[in-house]
Amino acid sequence: MEKTIQISGLSKSYDGKKVIENLSFSVAAGEVYGLLGANGVGKSTTIECILGTKKADSGTVRILGLDPWTERKQLFKQVGVQFQEANYPDKIKVKELCEETTCLYRYPMAYKELLHKFGLSDKENAFVNELSGGQKQKLFIVLSLIPNPRVVFLDELTTGLDTKARRGVWKSLLELKKNGLTIVLSSHFMDEVEILCDRIGILKDGGFAFEGTVKEAVALSPYEKMEDAYLWFTGEEDEDNE
């Protein structure tokens, strides 16, 4: 059965230094796939190469059977993206940003409902640059869900959110997952990974140090907790003990 996301032989280097090399993985429909790894290992680069916002050196990418480079317009009617860094004009209000995003899609979700779900209803008329870091993060997740997507890419989705907000985001995403949403996310938080992810890929030195479920990762490691297993796979546990 064709996978929703199919990546094959993806490679990208900057100034001769290979960031990702011959990366291959797939994500099935309705699955949540987590990309993990240390800072600078290539998680965001991988996501951007998949989406086509960065040109990969080699490899093929298919999302919903479509090529992000040659079939961009058709593909992104069904895909939502939340980037790690903010990308909005100065002096724009929350409502205006949501309206501008909504008008790009034929069958969008109602942004007011999404704002309510993520606790931002009272910020509708506020300027985006007046929001706190966590509120901005929630807004960008709202923007990624406005397209009513079949696939969503979330780059560090809960960085900067308080505990209650994180749980609210998880709950919303799990509800959407029940409706068949496919999610690819990157995260530094193992509790989030354990709750959300069906499968994970731990990046190290341009490739996967591990790919599989959270339980398999823990079972393969000499540890019982996912956080310790993750540090073991990335080789960072030794740095802590030095």
Partner: peptide, 17 residues
């Protein structure tokens, strides 16, 4: 300004150019 703020990048992942 829009390039520096990566606003144009956001439009690359929408159906609109």
């Amino acid at each position: 300004d829009y390039h520096q703020k990566k606003i144009l990048k956001r439009y690359k992942v929408t159906p609109t150019s």
